[in-house]
């Protein structure tokens, strides 16, 4: 590991200026992803600006009924919050399905969203990887890609984003608040669904954020339908493993039909995948398995699985069907 300087930021302005002013600087949250990458040689910052003492460590009500989650709120505290558990269960369930109890006590909301892919080649500096070193080539495309993308990938990168939290936030229409070097004293608001990007020709950019952009909070809209929501994660082990496929969904029934629905998929793309085609196919339709299946198939029609992850297409379809069936009383949760 190369030597680095360490500073504790007292306020957001100083933190942003410190990172923006040094191309080798990085924000430090709980460290559970960044420190790992520094040990592996994947990240080599020469200055760490610790943002865990900034005053963004609470969950507060927003006028109008939503919630503002401070970027420094630990994953465990957010999952334990009564308001989250009763009004946005999908969010608590997503957090609780990620990592382990002792990691969630360290991991922050901001750091979780900006964690990087778990692609084994990205983490192994002895192998070519376009995300780590643009232009080198992608080792996963013809290599080990069981966990990789089936939607929205490019010839340059087939990685998936690993955050469970981000999938739930995408389904909930959450908004990420960012303060950057060009925002003065103000902040910008980025819909959670637009924070992460598809790889295209620039897999080195995970998100739309630039160097020195600090996440300060995530806002949840009131969204009463979220009280009936759920997260299901399919993985190789019963616990403590990343998703092969995950589904975050919320449903509102109006009379005998689906009045409104939110669906996001994890483990399938370079970003949390908002299933807008499936949502459109379901609005106004009766909540039955045939409809759920048709909607899931519409969403997955353009899937382009790799040699060894074809199983993800039916897995994603079946998980969507079972989550929607559970939420609409077709089968027990």
């Amino acid at each position: 590991m190369i030597p680095f300087d360490y500073r504790r930021a007292g306020d957001a302005e100083t933190a942003v200026a410190a990172v923006a002013g040094n191309p080798g600087a990085a924000f430090l949250g709980g460290g559970t992803n960044l420190v790992d990458h520094m040990k592996l040689g994947v990240a080599e910052p020469d200055l760490l600006v610790d943002v865990t003492r900034l005053p963004f460590d609470s969950v507060d009500p927003l006028p109008g009924g939503g919630l503002r989650i401070g970027a420094g709120v630990r994953n465990s505290d957010l999952a334990a919050d009564e308001r989250v558990r009763t009004r946005y269960p999908v969010l608590a369930e997503a957090l609780l399905s990620g990592a382990s109890g002792q990691l969630r006590n360290l991991a922050t909301t901001g750091g979780n969203l900006l964690q990087r892919t778990r692609c084994g080649y990205f983490q192994d500096v002895t192998t070519p990887c376009n995300k780590r070193r643009p232009g080198e080539g992608c080792s996963a495309r013809e290599g080990y890609h069981r966990y990789h993308a089936i939607l929205g990938a490019s010839p340059h990168c087939v990685a998936v984003h690993p955050s469970d939290l981000a999938v739930a936030l995408t389904a909930l229409d959450a908004v990420v608040r960012v303060r950057g070097p060009r925002d003065g004293h103000g902040e910008r608001a980025i819909p959670a669904a637009e924070l992460h990007r598809l790889p295209g020709e620039h897999p080195e950019w995970d998100t739309v954020l630039g160097h020195g952009d600090l996440i300060t909070a995530v806002d949840l809209p009131p969204l009463p339908m979220a009280a009936r929501s759920r997260y299901r994660k399919v993985r190789d082990r019963a616990s403590y493993a990343f998703a092969l496929v995950s589904v975050a969904a919320a449903v509102e029934l109006t009379g005998d039909v689906i009045g409104d629905v939110r669906i996001a998929l994890g483990g399938v793309a370079h970003k949390p995948w908002r299933a807008t085609l499936a949502e459109a196919a379901l609005r106004g339709r009766p909540p039955d398995r045939a409809e759920f299946r048709a909607a899931a198939e519409a969403e997955l029609a353009d899937a382009q699985p790799l040699r060894d992850n074809r199983f993800k297409v039916p897995m994603a379809r079946n998980t969507i069907v079972s989550v929607l069936a559970g939420l609409t009383g077709e089968e027990p949760r």
Binding site: Y6, G30, D36, T52, S76, Q102, L103, L106
Partner: peptide
């Protein structure tokens, strides 16, 4: 961060210590 053998109670809460810098 994958095995948990380094877990301690850090300010009263369980936490892994291998992915935390002492200075932080």
């Amino acid at each position: 961060g994958q095995c948990g053998t380094c877990t301690v109670l850090l300010d009263g809460r369980r936490a892994t210590t291998c992915l935390a810098f002492a200075v932080a």
